[in-house]
Amino acid sequence: MGNGLLKDFFKRNGTVMGWFLIIAVTFWVVVLIILPQISMFDFSFRNHLPPPEMGGPKDVYTLKNYKYLIFGAEGNPDAYNKTDLAVFGKTLLAAAFVTILDLVLCYPIAYYLGQSRGGGLTRVLVLFLIIPYWINEILRAFAFRIIFGDSGVINEMMMFLGLIDSPIDFIRENVALYAGLGYAYILLMIFPMYNVIESLDRNQIEAARDMGASWVKIHRRIVIPYAKPGISSGCTMVFMLSAGALAAPQILGGPSSLWFTQIIYQWFNQGGNWPQGSAFAAVLLATCIFIVLAVMRIFKVNMGDIGK
């Protein structure tokens, strides 16, 4: 049967294209995804050694990089590595917050887009949502710095309207960061939801209305259950990407707030300690996956639905 499948595959794509697809996909998956991740994972269990000592007697597997994240450096007076763990926790919480913020903002938009049957206005709206993504991430982040700065549009406007007397430090309060991150992933939240909601039969909504259901009821009982695969797919992406974001926290984060990715970056870059950085990154990835799976379990979403 596997043979038949393969034959069929070649028949459909032609021999040359078929081989190209197989080799390209294999290369992509193995060389660009699996191998580097395995070697990073391998790194995370090694000692930080200068190049001449690599492969030498000191190059043995160790758990110390992971121990460091939990207990800190040797001689740490505290029981745990308070600084790093706090950043880790804060990053996950902040990513969850960004995810929820995006969900709340994007659900009505996705619903409107999905149910308006692709009229002219819808297309314009979608275009407006896409165009900002042509601008690169760094530029977008700096633009947010300007908007949220002391003399930025928002502060000026609020002072002009008399809402505040002196400018609010949005950067310090991390408002700019949340706004920037939320904004960066809006499309990733909207499109999966939009995709699912678009296929929801309007008659179901009208039937519910006919039976006297309120809008809240209609969304709670009909639209949201139906859109669940899209919602979870959007939330997963936004959560993973927010937790792993680097540029936005770097540029928009307040002076006292550190994103866990920034610590990882420091280990790799300033510290030159790849094993330590790999261990931190591995823990972040594993924890994110665990959280996503747990949340999916709670909301009874199947893995298969996400790919829809």
Partner: peptide, 17 residues
């Protein structure tokens, strides 16, 4: 509105949930 009328509509495609 539809919910205020003493009518119930059965849709062409049934529209069961």
């Amino acid at each position: 509105g539809p919910n205020e009328r003493p009518t119930a509509l059965i849709f062409q495609n049934l529209a069961l949930f």
